[in-house]
Structures are given as C-alpha cells and as structure tokens.
C-alpha cells in the first residue's frame, strides 16, 4: 500500500489562468518537503485542491492509499489531512484552547443527537481532547495563553496557534502555508522544532514558504513549482543554486 500523499495528474484552471497543470507530487511519511516558486505558481492552489477547498478539473489525490477525490473537506481532514492557512483563519470568538479543541480528531460535541444521548461519552472525549490540546500548547510554549482570547494574542503566537490547531487531528499529512510570514524569534524556533518532531513520528509534511533560509534549515528536499507544474525536485541548495529557477523565481 502506498503511504503518504500521492497526487497524480491534478488539473485546475480558472478561465485562462492555469493553477495546476497535470501536477504530480508524492509526499512520503517522515519527509519534510519545501514547496517553492514565484507568486502565482499555484502553491496555495495546490493545497486548496488537495484539501478539497477547490474542486479540481481532473486528477487523483490519495492519502495512505485511500482516494480523497470527491470527498468533502471535513472528510479529508478526518482521514488525517491537516493544513494551516496563509491568513491564519483562527476563530476570533474563541480562546486559544478552544481554537485547538475544535480541531480534535473526534468531536462528539458537533452532533446534537450524540450530545443529548451520551453526555458521559462527551465528557470523556472533552477531557481527552483538553489533555491533548494543553500538551500541544505546552510543547509550543503557549501554555500561558491557553485561556486567552485568540484575537488578543500577539501575531507570532497566533501563527503558532494555527499550527497547533492543525496538529489536533493527529495528521498523517500536514500542509503548512507560509508558516513564517511575519514571524521571528521564538516562534521561528518553535515551528521548526515542532515540524521536525512531527516528521520524526512518520508524518508527511509539505511547507510553502518564501523564507528560503527557513526552507533550507528545515526541509529534507525542495520542490520548485511554476505555472501549476513541478519543474524540479531535489535538495533545497541545488534548487536555489539553479540559475534557470532563480530567473523564474524573480521573473527577470
């Protein structure tokens, strides 16, 4: 059985703009892959297509051998596909801890019948989710703000909350969309540390990031995307050194 994320012949165009052109990409368990390319190359669109936010015109996506094609966004997430967002998309009306709890793999509290029929099971699930969430927050240095409203936490910490929330469903594959934009200092280290530990546990990770130093420090390999296609794959050093890619990147 093929493990990790497998993308075959993924196609999507919006009118004349092609965001995925027979895109092929494998993300193996335990590997950290950096997705780089100029703006408009289709990196975020790739995430949107894989997670089901945008319906592709064609192609297949599977996770650990299970086809994701045609599944709803929430069904893909339940199979272990997790992501963060460039613009965070945290829940401003919730505390940091509650933001995480929403992401629990099993959340019986989202079903009214379950709520009314089984308060005992619900309490146990809540207690387990709380322990897991506080544990993640602790590891990321966010334990102190667990009960703070997420909107009043500094931006760097909000970025971390976005990553922490994506870990709650115990992902098999994690897609990080620009985790470093606007982040410095402690959060930088914390995110690197967390991602490495995830990979060590056999999770396939893909990072979209413009901060090349971050990609080089963190990723096992890089994938260069341009016009909805994978142009090159290899060590991040080699990709950066390739004059052809640099030209495409800076659009000279």
């Amino acid at each position: 059985m093929p493990a990790g994320l497998e993308v075959r012949g993924l196609c999507k165009r919006f009118g004349g703009i092609v965001v995925a052109d027979a895109m092929e990409l494998d993300l193996a368990p335990g590997r950290i892959v950096g997705l780089i390319g100029p703006n408009g190359a289709g990196k975020t669109s790739f995430f949107n297509l894989v997670t089901g936010v945008v319906r592709p015109d064609g192609g297949r996506v599977s996770l650990d051998g299970r086809a994701l094609t045609g599944l709803h966004i929430h069904q893909r997430a339940r199979l272990g596909l997790s992501r963060t967002w460039q613009n965070l998309r945290l829940f401003p009306s919730l505390s940091v801890l509650d933001n995480l709890l929403i992401g629990a793999r099993v959340y019986p509290g989202e079903s009214l019948p379950a709520l009314i029929a089984g308060p005992g099971r619900l309490r146990r699930a809540e207690a387990a989710d709380r322990t897991q969430a506080l544990d993640i927050l602790e590891r990321m240095g966010l334990a102190g703000v667990a009960h703070t409203d997420v909107a009043s936490v500094p931006f760097g910490q909000q970025k971390l909350v976005g990553v922490a929330r994506a870990l709650m469903n115990e992902p098999r594959c994690l897609l990080l969309d620009e985790p470093m934009a606007g982040v410095e200092g402690h959060a930088y280290e914390a995110i690197q540390d967390v991602v490495r530990r995830l990979a060590a546990r056999g999770i396939a990770v893909c990072v979209v990031e413009h901060n090349v130093a971050f990609i080089r420090d963190l990723c096992d390999e890089g994938v260069f995307m341009f016009a909805g296609k994978v142009l090159a794959r290899g060590s991040v050093e080699d990709l950066i050194a390739d004059p052809r890619l640099t030209e495409l990147y800076f659009g000279t």
């Binding site: 709803h72 929430h74 997790s82």
Partner: peptide, 13 residues
Amino acid sequence: RDDELAFAALGRN
C-alpha cells in the same frame, strides 16, 4: 460562524 472553511478543514461537518 467565525470561519466555516477553517472549521470544515479541521474535520467538522
């Protein structure tokens, strides 16, 4: 209510 897309992407229906 805050963000339906992020909500769905976390596995909620």
